[in-house]
Simulated scan of single mutants.
Amino acid sequence: MTSGHALLGISGGVDSAVAACLLVDKGLQVTGLNIRILDNAQDNLTLEPSPIVISDDPAYSIPVYTLNLSASFRDTVIANFREEYLAGRTPNPCTLCNKEIKWKGLLLSARMLGADIVATGHYARSICTENGPELHKGIDPSKDQSYFLWMLSREELDQTLFPLGELTKPEVRELARRFSVRAAAKKESQEICFIPHNDYRAFLSSSLPGLEKQVCNGEIIDARGKVAGHHKGYPFYTIGQRRGLGISSSEPLYVNRIEPERNRIHVGGKDSLARDTLTAHSMNWSGIPAPREPFRSLARIRYRDTETPCRVIPLDRNRVEVVFDTPKQAVTAGQAVVFFRDDTVLGGGIIV
């Protein structure tokens, strides 16, 4: 796309700023949108001017607006985060935020501003094919973020540009300096935006008063079914966790099962984490029609996972069973399983 009006999500970091400058260089009219999500306020669907300046070069001076979706973020992303941990699952809030907050906010604001298309600074690609748009990996394997975008529909992909999809992170850093981007030297955050110091246990405790007292002193069950000790509360543990168990053993022990209804966690050796099947629900198929027959694919069960060959067996329109050629370690309920064919995202779902 070399003309028209693009509305680009602005985070304040280097990636979205460079994406904006690249779109300007392509000849598009570019407007920035900063979606506020952590204010103690209700949603404000009025677009307000933002003081954010992406570049000191006048050639890249673009208007930036703010849309406040803090209440929606609390009621969807944060509420889901709490509910999932209380159910003994480990959620991925970034995928839900992309779908329910970022893209909804961008597309709503694009309609208000009369923009033709939206854009973000994600390292991914949307490629038009004869069957419609497809989500593809970004070319930089160390930064590819297509895993986090599996929830997007084809309609949303059709309205989205990913200017950084063909670039590596070092190339983006270099472009930031060339474009006089103010955030050129800004460090990347690896934290979940609403979790201070990335300590989700402290967040759950502070946001759910009385939780620690309610769930403390639950039983830790070993491979023999015996009580090996007591834990601080099941929501504070995840599958595959080794540290913080507070029990001694001749071999390393890992959490391999969580029983929220009994406030129990189960532990075992590393071999106990291996699984060759899983079931997933809430399927979204952006790269292929919803399958009716089993098919072969590659799958990841977390962001930094290695893709593993598997057989995907549809159970109904909303659920699949996945059988891996080789066992996966620490399959975790609440995380996403995402299916790939080469660099194309076929779809994904939430692990049961």
Results as ranks from 00 to 15, higher is better:
329 Q>P: 00
313 I>G: 05
337 V>S: 11
342 D>Y: 05
341 R>A: 15
285 W>Q: 11
334 G>N: 03
333 A>I: 02
287 G>M: 06
322 V>D: 11
345 V>A: 14
329 Q>G: 08
308 T>I: 07
309 P>N: 12
310 C>W: 02
341 R>D: 15
343 D>H: 06
288 I>D: 15
306 T>L: 10
287 G>H: 07
328 K>I: 01
331 V>M: 13
286 S>W: 01
303 Y>G: 10
326 T>Y: 11
347 G>I: 01
316 D>N: 15
312 V>Q: 07
290 A>L: 02
288 I>T: 11
343 D>V: 03
319 R>W: 06
313 I>N: 10
343 D>F: 04
321 E>G: 09
309 P>I: 00
304 R>I: 03
286 S>I: 07
339 F>P: 05
350 I>C: 10
294 P>L: 08
305 D>V: 00
335 Q>P: 00
343 D>W: 02
336 A>N: 12
297 S>K: 03
297 S>C: 09
313 I>A: 07
296 R>A: 15
320 V>H: 09
310 C>F: 00
336 A>C: 09
346 L>N: 12
311 R>A: 12
298 L>Q: 15
314 P>T: 06
335 Q>W: 09
314 P>C: 08
329 Q>M: 10
342 D>F: 03
318 N>C: 04
337 V>F: 07
311 R>C: 10
303 Y>V: 05
325 D>Q: 07
298 L>R: 05
321 E>Q: 14
299 A>I: 01
292 R>E: 15
331 V>G: 13
287 G>S: 11
293 E>F: 06
336 A>F: 04
297 S>I: 02
307 E>F: 00
308 T>C: 14
293 E>C: 01
286 S>M: 14
337 V>G: 08
297 S>Y: 07
300 R>I: 00
338 V>T: 08
301 I>V: 12
329 Q>I: 06
344 T>Q: 15
294 P>E: 14
340 F>G: 08
341 R>M: 07
301 I>L: 11
287 G>E: 14
310 C>K: 00
336 A>S: 15
297 S>P: 04
286 S>R: 03
306 T>G: 04
305 D>L: 01
295 F>I: 02
309 P>K: 02
